[in-house]
């Protein structure tokens, strides 16, 4: 199993490297001058030259990349072009916010999806129909539109939950939970149906397998056959999908954080994009990629936890 983890880590290195190269290549394609873009049309040539020198923009691209990479390996992602604050500090401050949202959405989607999927694999025709309707709905209703509808119903009309803002868990756990309810629902809707469909499919596959027939034929109760044996066998596929959902939710969080005014990595990425604050965007890209790597690693470890064959190898 440790070999598996090691291999996954070795694959992650080129992934991180490729993402960072893509960032730099895209940067070289920017039409016009980044420094002018940041400082605006009213900036004097001296101001622009100063920023270019300070940010290393006057160096050749390979040199800029080598500097950035060298600093990144030492844990520094540079400074924002806009307010000159260290990028990694800003990202670290926002990381828990985004994690709360994305982990919450992944968990919610997985739990609800597994319940719906298992019920529909047990032949509840109404639930199967509900999943079909939900899956078209989940696909057709963009998360940000759902977010707006939720705000208009639960915040504006009913006044039950806050429309915007985020409360840190440390300040008020209940406030934290309340501030996350609507964003998590909006972000998890797509995933619920994906998990439900996959769970249903995986359960039907496993329930048709030889060992399930053998357990049933020897009188193992149906409850145990379904919830202990079949569900555990389906868990690897479900967890794989959960990992993919997490990655999808990471992308979706960019828009959802904007709608709900949540100060996470996504809303930082949006404001940095508008301001052309390149070091910050690079930092967000690296953080997102790191999160993807961590999630893939956790998925692998969970395989080993579920399946003794993976554990042994």
């Amino acid at each position: 199993m440790w070999r598996l983890v090691l291999r996954r880590l070795l694959v992650s290195v080129p992934l991180l490297w490729i993402v960072s190269v893509i960032v730099f290549v895209l940067e070289s394609l920017i039409p016009g001058d980044v420094a002018r873009g940041v400082l605006g049309v009213s900036a004097t040539p001296a101001q622009i030259a100063a920023l270019r020198r300070a940010a290393g923009l006057d160096q050749p691209l390979w040199r800029q990349y080598a500097d950035w990479l060298g600093n990144a390996l030492h844990g520094s992602l540079g400074r924002s072009l806009v307010d000159y604050s260290p990028v990694s500090a800003g990202l670290n401050q926002r990381l828990p916010v985004t994690l709360s949202l994305v982990i919450g959405a992944t968990l919610a989607a997985t739990l609800a999806g597994v319940v719906l999927g298992v019920l529909s694999s047990r032949g509840h025709p109404l639930i199967a129909r509900l999943i079909d309707v939900l899956s078209i709905g989940g696909l057709a209703v963009p998360g940000f539109w759902l977010a707006l509808i939720l705000i208009s119903v639960f915040s504006v009309r009913l006044g039950l939950l806050p429309a915007t803002g985020y409360v840190a868990f440390g300040n008020s756990p209940s406030g934290w939970a309340q501030s996350l309810v609507l964003p998590v629902i909006a972000l998890s809707m797509n995933g619920i149906t994906a998990i439900a469909k996959l769970t249903r499919e995986a359960m039907l596959d496993v329930l048709a397998s030889e060992f399930i027939r053998n357990l049933r034929a020897n009188g193992i109760p149906e409850r145990s056959v379904v919830y202990r044996h079949a569900l555990r066998s389906s868990a690897m596929r479900i967890l794989t999908m959960s990992g993919l959902l997490f990655i999808g939710a990471l992308g979706g969080s960019v828009v959802i954080e904007h709608v709900f005014g949540i100060p996470g990595l996504g809303s930082l990425a949006v404001s940095a994009t508008t301001a052309k604050d390149i070091p910050v965007i690079q930092g967000v890209a690296i953080y997102f990629t790191l999160l993807v790597i961590v999630v893939n690693l956790l998925t692998d470890i969970s395989y080993a936890w579920i399946n003794p064959r993976v554990r042994g190898s």
Partner: peptide, 19 residues
């Protein structure tokens, strides 16, 4: 496989920032 594990939203934001 490699491309699939790139977080696409971030790449889109970068492209937008630059172009």
């Amino acid at each position: 496989d490699l491309v699939l594990s790139i977080p696409s939203m971030v790449v889109l934001l970068m492209v937008l920032a630059f172009s």
